[in-house]
Simulated assay, not measured.
Amino acid sequence: MDGTTKHPALDEEGLRRLLDGLTAVRDGDCSTRLPTDADGLLGEIAGVFNGMADQLSLVTSEVTRVSREVGGQG
C-alpha cells in the first residue's frame, strides 16, 4: 500500500451515520445502533460503537435502579 488507499466504506455517508449515532448517544439515546454490515473500517467502528452504546445503556439502567432504591429508603 502507498498510504493513499481509502477505505471504500469510510465515505461521507458512513461518517454521517457515525456522527448521527454519536450525537444521539450524547443526547441520551442509548438505543441507537449503527449497521454492522459495512465492510472494512466502518464495520469495525460500528461494532465498537454498538458495544459502547450497550454498555452505556446497562450502566444507565443500573444507576437508575440504584437511585430509585436509595430514594425509596428515605
Rank of each mutant, 00 (worst) to 15 (best):
Ala9Pro: 07
Asp27Arg: 02
Arg33Met: 10
Glu13Thr: 12
Ala38His: 12
Asp20His: 13
Thr32Asn: 02
Arg68Trp: 01
Gly71Ser: 12
Leu58Thr: 11
Glu12Asn: 02
Gly40Ser: 07
Pro8Cys: 03
Glu13Gly: 07
Leu18Lys: 05
Glu44Met: 02
Gly21Asp: 02
Glu13Ser: 05
Arg26Tyr: 10
Gly21Leu: 03
Arg26Asp: 12
Leu34Asn: 03
Pro35His: 04
Thr32Leu: 07
Cys30Thr: 02
Arg68Ser: 13
Thr4Asp: 03
Val25Met: 08
Ala38Trp: 01
His7Glu: 13
Ala46Arg: 05
Asp54Glu: 13
Leu42Glu: 15
Glu44His: 03
Val63Gly: 01
Gly47Cys: 09
Gln73Thr: 15
Ile45Ser: 00
Thr32Ser: 03
Arg65Leu: 12
Thr60Ser: 07
Leu18Gly: 02
Cys30Ala: 04
Thr23Ala: 07
Leu22Ser: 08
His7Trp: 05
Gln73Phe: 13
Arg16Ser: 08
Leu22Cys: 09
Gly40Pro: 02
Pro8Asp: 10
His7Ala: 11
Gly74Tyr: 12
Gly47Ser: 12
Leu22Ile: 11
Thr5Leu: 06
Ile45Ala: 01
Leu18Ala: 11
Asp29Gly: 05
Asn50Trp: 14
Ser61Trp: 00
Glu12Gln: 06
Val63Lys: 04
Thr5Cys: 07
Asp11Ile: 06
Thr60Asn: 13
Glu44Gln: 04
Glu12Met: 06
Ala53Val: 15
Val70Gln: 14
Leu19Asp: 15
Gly47His: 05
Ser67His: 11
Gly3Arg: 03
Gly3Val: 04
Glu12Arg: 01
Leu22Asp: 01
Arg33His: 04
Leu15Asn: 07
Gly71Leu: 14
Arg65Gly: 06
Gly71Thr: 14
Ala53Leu: 14
Thr23Cys: 06
Glu62Val: 01
Gly74Cys: 00
Asp27Val: 06
Leu10Glu: 00
Glu69Lys: 08
Asp54Ala: 08
His7Phe: 14
Arg33Pro: 00
His7Leu: 11
Gly14Thr: 12
Ala53Thr: 12
Arg65Asn: 04
